[in-house]
Amino acid sequence: MSPSAREIAAASPEVLLARLREERYLADDGLATAIFLAIRLGKPLLLEGAPGVGKTEAAKVLANILRCDLVRLQCYEGIDAAHALYEWNYQRQLLAIRQSGDREIDIYDDRFLIARPLLQVLQAPDARLLLIDEIDRSDHEFEALLLEFLSDFQITIPERGTIAAKVRPIVVLTSNRTRELAEALRRRCVYNWIDYPDAAREAEIIMARAGDVAEATAAAIAKAVRQIRAKPLAKPPGISEAIEWANAATVLEKGGSPWPEAFRRAIGVLVKDEEDMQYLLPQLSRIVEEALA
């Protein structure tokens, strides 16, 4: 039997690092090691970090590498089992009962079961990767429900019995750390804290991800963004905003704006909070000029 995509990718942390790079995701060694361990130990991977550091993107890229479909469960306050596990299609069940007349029908047949992300992944654990995004937005009850799922990778449907995964699915959880997660959940996962990259790696990411951006522009953007993130902003810019800034400034420069001016005019794609913008504008020229120096 030929080795699976999972076995090939998780041959070593170095192989994973190289595969991530091929997908234009420039991870550090710690993240590659954590992904490697999560796959090899059969445990969920918990990625924590500030918004915009590339947590969700890591899961998307991993799904590509493992040739899996990404099943995303976006968490929010009030999310419950019906949104995460499964639901019965009551209207369809009622219609089927009406149409059946005197015939007996099984209203708990597959036809009436609406599989939500957790069940979808259990049904094809080697072909789907589960992303539980922004788990810190959900409440403690939902965390407890997840804990059960992540322990045994099975779901019990009272009318149908227990559905267990044939192989352990790859599960990635992300959190912006707006609140502490339950210790029990953290302990069950392989953990990685994703920090903002240093200026050199961010410049490399910009070069890899942006369209037609010069190396000097990427380096200047990375330096300036690092300065901007150090300010007390409500919404510090993420990596994707830095890439957008590089693209927008390049377009403006090609349209005739000279360099420092192009950065300043494109700032709207980097800073999207009005108060942050008002705070930053008086300092922007100095930050940009220092970055270009």
């Binding site: 954590a34 953290r186 953990y191 990685n192």
Partner: peptide
Amino acid sequence: MTDIREAALATLAPQP
């Protein structure tokens, strides 16, 4: 030792 350190960070999960 880097392997051991990264394994510890990933599995013992110290708070950031």
